[in-house]
Simulated scan of single mutants.
Amino acid sequence: MKKSKNISLGLLSFPSTKTGITPLSNMVEILLAVVGDLHLVSGNESCRKFQDDNRLELYCTHHHSSSFSLKRVWNYFYLQLSMALYVLQLRKVDFWIFFIGGDTLLLPMLMARLTGKRVILLFAGSSIQTLVHRQDKFAGVARRVSHLNCSLSNAMILYFKSLKTEWGLEKYEDKIIIQPRHFIDTKNFKRNPASPREYIGYVGRLSQEKGVMNLVKSIPLMDKKVKFLICGEGPLKKEIKEYLRVNDLKNQVELTGWINHQDLPDYLNRMKLLVVPSYTEGFPNIILEALSCGTPVAATTAGAIGEIIKDHENGFILKNNYPSTISGFLEEFLDYENLDKIRENGYQTVAGFDYNKIKKNWDDLLYRFYEEGL
C-alpha cells in the first residue's frame, strides 16, 4: 500500500530537449506510482511527450534558445516568470520538486516559498558544471543563483554520495538526501544474441561537456577497420560531421541522429562497447541500459559513474578522456578475452535498480517529507 497516495505534488522541470526526456519520463513514472495527484510544469519536448497523458495535469511553457546575450537573458526571464505564475496558480499542491535545471530557476523558487510551499531540489546533473565546460559567459551568474536556490530549498536530493563533493554542495550537508531514481525496463533492454556487435558506440547529447568530440578525435588514431556508431543530436553535430569529412572518416563512422527510446535496445545490441567520455555527469541512465543489453561500458569517473562502474569488474574506467587515452584503451579492449564475466557482472549491477524497490524508496521519502518535513 502506497503511503503517499494523498499527496498532491508539483513537479517543475526546465523545458526539455529530446535528451532530457528519458530522465524526466522515468521520474514521472515513479511519482505517478506513489502520489495521488501530479502537476507537471515544463515545456518544449516535455509537453509533446505528456500532452495526451491523462494521469497528470500538464502546464506548458516554452523556451527559445538564442546566441544573442540580451535575447537569451530575456527568454530566460520570461520562462521563469511564466513558471512562477504557474506555481502561484497551483496553490493546491502540497509541495514542489524542482527537477532538471531547477537549481537555476530563481523566480519559481521565490514564488513557491512566498506562497508557503516547501521545495525539494532534485539534481539530475550539475547545471553549473555543464555551463563551465561549455565556457558559457553566464556560468558565474548561474552559480550564484544555484547557491541561492539551494539555500532557499527545504531539501536537496542527490543520486549518489560522491556528487555532494563533485558539485561543491558540502555546505548543504544537513539538507541532502541520497536517493536514486534510476530503474531499467529489463523486458525491453535485454541482450539479443542474434545481433552482430560491429560497433564502438556513443549515445547521448552531442555537446562539449559530454566529451563526444574527444571520442571523435580518437578515431583517426584507430585501425580503419574499427567501426563507430554515434547516436544523438546537439550543438556539436555540424563540427563532428565536418571533422569526419576533413579526415576522410565518413565510411568508418555512422551518425544516426536522435534515436527514439523504444528503439535504443536495438542500437545497443549492435555495439561491442559503449563509450561514455563525459567531463561532467549525474549518473547517465544509458550506462544501466547498456549493461542490461549485455553491452560493456567504458566511462570516465564523472559524476557518480565511479560508484557503479568498477574497472575490469562490471565495466571499464577511462583514466581520462583524451583522444590518445581513448584510442589506447580501445586497442586493448578489442583484444580483451573475458567479456562474458564483465557482462554477467553488469547484469548483476542492473538487478540492483529494480523498479519496485526504487518506487518503495520514493514512496517512503515523499511521505516522510509530507508528514515531517524530513
Rank of each mutant, 00 (worst) to 15 (best):
D174G: 09
G211F: 07
K250W: 03
S218E: 02
G234W: 06
R181H: 10
K187Y: 09
G201K: 07
E173W: 10
Y202D: 00
E209R: 02
H182E: 07
S162C: 01
K175E: 09
E173S: 15
Y199Q: 06
R191E: 11
E173N: 15
A194S: 14
K171L: 10
P196Q: 03
E173D: 15
G201T: 01
G232D: 04
D185C: 02
S207P: 08
I240G: 03
K210N: 02
G168E: 05
T186I: 15
R181K: 08
N214I: 00
K175G: 07
I219T: 03
G234M: 12
Y172M: 09
Y243R: 06
K217Q: 14
K217G: 04
K171N: 09
V226F: 06
L229A: 12
W167A: 00
I184L: 09
E239M: 08
E198H: 13
I219N: 06
I176W: 06
P193N: 05
S207C: 12
M222P: 01
L244P: 05
S218T: 04
V246C: 08
L169M: 15
L229W: 10
P196R: 05
S195R: 05
L215C: 02
K175V: 10
L215A: 03
R245M: 08
L244M: 04
L169Q: 13
I240V: 11
S207G: 11
S162A: 12
E239V: 09
M213G: 12
W167K: 04
D223G: 13
T165E: 15
L169G: 03
R245H: 15
E233L: 08
T165L: 08
K187I: 04
G204I: 06
F189P: 00
E166N: 11
K164N: 11
N188V: 11
G168V: 10
K227D: 04
V216F: 01
K164Q: 15
E173K: 14
N247V: 14
R191F: 12
R181E: 07
M213W: 04
V226L: 11
E233T: 14
D248T: 13
L249Y: 07
D223F: 08
G232E: 05
R245T: 15
G232V: 01
Q179N: 13
P220I: 05
E166D: 14
K237I: 10
R197H: 07
M213T: 10
V226R: 00
E198S: 05
R205I: 08
N188D: 05
K225S: 15
K237W: 07
D223A: 14
F189Q: 01
I178S: 06
I240K: 00
P180L: 01
E173H: 15
